[in-house]
């Protein structure tokens, strides 16, 4: 009983981790399965087919690439626009500033079904052909909100004396931005971009409304789920998960190394 009380925190922690990782390990395990029938649900026998033949099932890889492309392009544009909007909102006083501040939250607050269907109605009304462009436009719309909110918070948290110090030290307005303001806001921008990309990559609802005949990765999986998801999807999902994990670990290690180097110097 005493033992239980003393280790309660660790036990709960481990249980939560197990809870978080079971689905992921199931996904990964089934990528090495050779399904008996149409559905890759129960374990049959070990096989590397899905991994050696990643693009073996038609549509898997092309939809994956489509989602990557849309994610990258939307993130790039949204980050650029969102950063500029954040600077304008924080640094300048103009008419409609507080309205903009409020409206920028709307895409985050609106239910995705509502946003997806409204956009569809708009595109149809304008006779705008559905496809990669409409999906990208929709994604840019909601990523911008996240970028603006994150970068704005970062900018507001910036000590104004740092920029004054730069001006005092012979930095022109342009140099102040380049050597002080931007580097200090950059982590916020990068964070917002990463978040924006992952939101775009796994968005289903809004994309489904506005994709027309375009098939993104989530849309492909949705379709495949009716007929049985091929193990290749599990393999790709594992790949994405591992990539994310490697990025996180790498950044941790770099930071740890830096700290070590500092302490020993």
């Amino acid at each position: 009983m005493r033992w239980l009380r003393r280790n309660a925190v660790s036990i709960v922690g481990i249980l939560v981790l197990v809870y978080l990782f079971i689905p992921i390990s199931v996904v990964t395990a089934l990528s090495f399965n050779k399904p008996a029938g149409k559905f890759n649900i129960s374990w049959n026998s070990f096989s590397l087919d899905a991994w050696t033949n990643l693009c073996g099932v038609p549509g898997v890889c092309s939809s994956f690439v489509t989602s990557l492309e849309i994610g990258l392009v939307s993130t790039l544009i949204a980050t650029l626009l969102g950063t500029m909007i954040a600077f304008a909102l924080v640094r300048y006083r103009f008419r409609g500033r507080s309205t903009t501040n409020l409206l920028i939250f709307l895409p985050m607050a609106t239910p995705e079904v509502v946003m997806g269907s409204s956009l569809l109605a708009l595109f149809l009304n304008m006779r705008f052909p559905l496809g990669p462009l409409t999906v990208a436009i929709a994604h840019i719309m909601f990523i911008i909100s996240f970028v603006v909110v994150t970068v704005k918070a970062r900018l507001q948290g910036l000590d104004p004396r740092l920029e004054e110090a730069a001006r005092d030290l012979y930095a022109s307005p342009r140099a102040t931005f380049r050597y002080v303001t931007f580097p200090l806001v950059l982590p916020g921008i990068i964070g917002a971009a990463l978040l924006g990309f992952s939101l775009s990559f796994d968005d289903f609802i809004i994309s489904y409304f506005n994709a027309g005949t375009l098939v993104t990765f989530p849309i492909y999986i949705w379709g495949a789920a009716q007929r049985g998801i091929p193990p290749q999807v599990n393999a790709l999902a594992t790949l994405v998960f591992v990539t994310a994990l490697v990025i996180v670990l790498a950044s941790q290690i770099v930071q740890y190394r830096k700290r070590k180097a500092m302490e020993s110097s």
Partner: peptide
């Protein structure tokens, strides 16, 4: 940035993203 005057700020206002060397070199580089 055009004045031959420099300030030691009340809260120092050192640039947190630059090391000590680059902080000190800032004015010369600009």
């Amino acid at each position: 940035f055009q004045r031959p005057v420099n300030t030691v700020f009340q809260s120092y206002a050192l640039f947190p993203h630059l090391d000590i060397f680059e902080n000190v070199a800032f004015g010369l580089r600009r």
